[in-house]
């Protein structure tokens, strides 16, 4: 009984995670510039990928698999913001065109030596 409930919960988590992944991809296509796209990819992507990883132990019901999945999710959650931050920083310093912003407090403070 408990096993069946866990399996159904895992199925729901898998589909919801896949849906978030799809929304991340739609966001990357639809949003107007790099920084707004980064919002979609880093948040929805991390949540979607993490949900799919957590669905695996719910379906297989194995302790060591659960531990590995949790470690994988922790790793994903720790590294996604770091890579998003690095990419945002690198592309802001290499191209000066922030195309679509209402207010830009970084723009006029940009270090002229860079």
């Amino acid at each position: 009984m408990i096993e069946a409930v866990a399996i159904y919960a895992g199925c729901v988590l898998l589909v919801v995670g896949a849906l978030f992944c799809l929304l991340a991809a739609v966001g990357v296509i639809r949003l107007p510039d790099l920084l707004t796209r980064m919002h979609a990819a880093s948040k929805a992507g991390a949540v979607g990928g993490g949900m799919i990883l957590l669905a695996v132990p719910l379906v297989s019901l194995d302790g060591s698999v659960a531990l590995r999945a949790i470690l994988g999710v922790m790793f994903l959650v720790l590294t996604t913001p770091v890579s998003a931050h690095l990419l945002a920083r690198a592309s802001l310093k290499s191209t000066d065109n922030v195309t679509f912003t209402a207010l830009d407090e970084l723009g006029h403070k940009k270090d002229p030596s860079l």
Partner: peptide
């Protein structure tokens, strides 16, 4: 907060009129 943010991004992505839903800014 992570779950809330994923839902909020999802809602913005699915808005038909993107230009009015977005007000991007870089804030110090």
């Amino acid at each position: 907060e992570l779950l809330i943010s994923a839902f909020r991004v999802a809602r913005i992505v699915l808005t038909p009129d993107l230009q009015s839903a977005l007000r991007p800014a870089i804030i110090a």
